[in-house]
């Protein structure tokens, strides 16, 4: 059931699937209303009118966007435009920042995640996160992956746990590399392996959505390519929201792309369309390298 506010919001004409007239009419850079395909048919997550403040400073203004099942949504934009901030709203990681305040509504399969009745722990188990810098726990590879299932009680016994660990590592494409060193510390792996370990750790709790904040920015091109392949495979089972600095990466891995600018969500659309035919002047400027 939608509450009143959301109902009104959804009726607002400009933000629906209206196909705007294609080029050459560009929307001017003073206009910060989101253009493009904000909603999807069957969203797993919906966000409406999200504002984020750090103390009095507003970092995100009035962002509304849906996330579909089994899609990779990439978020691009110049640094400091609020991509990470928005991403961290989706699993309430912003709760850990004392000054951060979030308003608006964010729903996961129809449940408001900021509702008092939502347990943030359950939420984060369903909306996992992979960070910019690989951050494996200073424990063994096995313990890293087993940690989530342990705290969430996903395994009835040791053999089930072993199975989860193995499947997760396989899905993350890491099994063959680490199957003989499960007891060695996860911090001893290479950077790319560490990041895949973090992904394995994340999928071990079988989330619905995986958030990735520039997961490849600390990696070399070969490791990056492996992660990109992995993201594509993971789409079979999960919805993925990825923040990236690299437009090529966004183009390679994502189905939809959202462009942020100074706290505003400027444009959303199918990746191929955004990259070939952006509607908004700001998007075009960014894509053509005029700033960023």
């Amino acid at each position: 059931m939608l509450n009143q506010k959301q109902a009104v919001l959804l009726e607002r004409p400009a933000k629906t699937n209206d196909v705007l007239p294609s080029a050459p009419v560009k929307i001017q850079d003073t206009d910060t209303k989101t253009v493009g395909q904000v909603t999807v048919d069957k969203p797993i997550m919906t966000t409406r009118n999200v504002d984020v403040y750090y103390d009095d400073k507003q970092a995100i203004r009035n962002v509304s966007i849906d996330i579909a099942y089994n899609e990779v949504l990439s978020m691009i934009g110049p640094s400091g435009c609020g991509k990470s901030t928005f991403l961290r709203c989706l699993n309430r990681m912003n709760d850990t920042i004392e000054s951060a305040r979030v308003t608006g509504s964010i729903e996961l399969e129809g449940h408001d995640i900021y509702d008092k009745k939502t347990d943030v722990v359950t939420l984060r188990a369903r909306v996992g996160m992979v960070f910019q810098k690989p951050n494996p726990f200073p424990k063994s590879v096995y313990e890293n992956v087993a940690y989530g299932p342990r705290i969430h009680g996903l395994a009835r016994n040791q053999s089930e746990l072993d199975e989860i660990v193995e499947t997760s590592l396989r899905r993350a494409g890491l099994w063959d590399e680490v199957k003989d060193r499960l007891r060695e510390p996860g911090t001893g792996l290479s950077g790319g392996q560490q990041q895949r370990l973090c992904i394995a750790r994340c999928i071990a709790v079988n989330p619905d959505v995986i958030l990735m904040d520039e997961p490849c920015s600390a990696l070399d091109p070969i490791a990056t390519a492996r992660i990109e392949e992995l993201i594509d495979e993971l789409r079979q089972n999960y919805s993925i929201v990825i923040v990236t600095h690299s437009m090529q990466q966004a183009a390679r891995v994502s189905q939809r792309t959202a462009y942020f600018h100074l706290g505003d969500l400027i444009e959303v659309g199918e990746t191929s369309i955004i990259f070939t035919n952006p509607q908004h002047k700001l998007t075009e400027d960014y894509l053509t390298g005029r700033f960023g």
């Binding site: 850990t96 722990v121 984060r124 369903r126 960070f131 951050n135 726990f137 940690y147 973090c198 994340c202």
Partner: peptide
């Protein structure tokens, strides 16, 4: 380091 904390919280560990 804060990254360890974020990692744990991101997994759905409570504080």
């Amino acid at each position: 380091p804060p990254s360890i904390r974020e990692g744990a919280l991101g997994m759905g560990a409570s504080q």
